[in-house]
Design a protein around this nucleic acid. Structure first.
Ligand code: FES
Ligand code: FES
Lengths: 154, 154
DNA sequence: TATATAGTGGACTATTATAGTCCCATATAT
DNA sequence: ATATATGGGACTATAATAGTCCACTATATA
């Protein structure tokens, strides 16, 4: 199913909530309530996001979490990467040496390219996009060399 | 890591091999050898691919497997879907009702769109593309309405 | 027709990855 | 001081996956 973990799912909902309440500090217990999970589990997610630099934490009474940067500058790829490590569909892609016949494998390179494409797809969607209602579909173009710069920078 | 299962990895290598030897029938034991796994495990993969309609099987002596259609008409999405079910990054996307606050969740719809984008990325790459050495990178374009038809049909 | 070969279907078990929980330490507002 | 809240890590329960096994069916050929 090519699915991401539950914790990552929680993470996106939490990040989404924080994006909709910018500048405010929210405690783990509150965020747990938003998602509908235990405080402990929320804490686990928040710690991970915090260590990845996506969240800024404040300890003590009236402490909590907030986004380190504006939602426009946080991508889905950032969140996914923070929660599940580097994006790579195959074992070979992220950990070299995993496959025995790595040298003679024609499949490997192409999978890396596909992983890269998926990564870019996720990088194009910001947290702000998520918080807003869906409008523009995400289009895919294969082999359109003269659009390269526009595509990458757009 | 957003990774697919090992069996799916095996599947791609097997499909790749069969694509490079079109019209020939290859036994499970032989294919197992190609990938470097046990015959039993290969059989498991082959059964799945066969049931999904991607492979044609022949029983008895001199039996084995071959592609049902030319490699150009088999996409990575086909293989991935055959091995892991419908592509969907979130739980909500593929199984409605999984999430309690589904109705009020702004995240859900956007994830479905992203999943769709990923699916299209995989659908654009054929087995023939995989077998060939990598040449054209896969480009991603966000919001390019006037390219829609070209993108979808290309 | 007998026999060896090879796929089919499903169940089972081992392994691995994930999710969830817990404990103790540290920081901070009141 | 103390109540509140995060930080880091270990631990356990659970779930998903991978791998194996068995009884059955189909087919080529001797
Ligand atoms: S499948 Fe691992 S290197 Fe090709
Ligand atoms: S996270 Fe499940 S519907 Fe939003």
């Amino acid at each position: 199913m090519l699915k991401m973990g539950k914790l990552t799912d929680y993470a996106t909902v939490i990040m989404n909530f924080l994006a909709q309440n910018p500048g405010e500090v929210h405690a783990a217990s509150e965020l747990a309530n938003v998602v509908g999970i235990s405080a402990q589990t929320a804490l686990k997610v928040l710690k991970t996001l915090s260590k990845a630099g996506l969240l800024q934490s404040q300890r003590g009474t009236k402490g909590g979490y907030q986004l380190t940067r504006p939602a426009q500058h946080i991508s889905m790829a950032d969140i996914l990467q923070a929660m599940e490590g580097p994006i790579g569909l195959t074992e070979c892609g992220s950990s070299p040496g995993a496959c025995v016949r790595e040298s003679q494998c024609s499949v490997k390179t192409n999978w890396q390219r596909i992983s890269q494409a998926v990564h870019e797809a996720l990088a194009k969607v910001s947290l702000a996009d998520m918080a807003a209602p869906p409008s523009q579909p995400i289009y895919f173009v294969k082999s359109a060399p003269d659009l390269t710069h526009a595509a990458v920078s757009a």
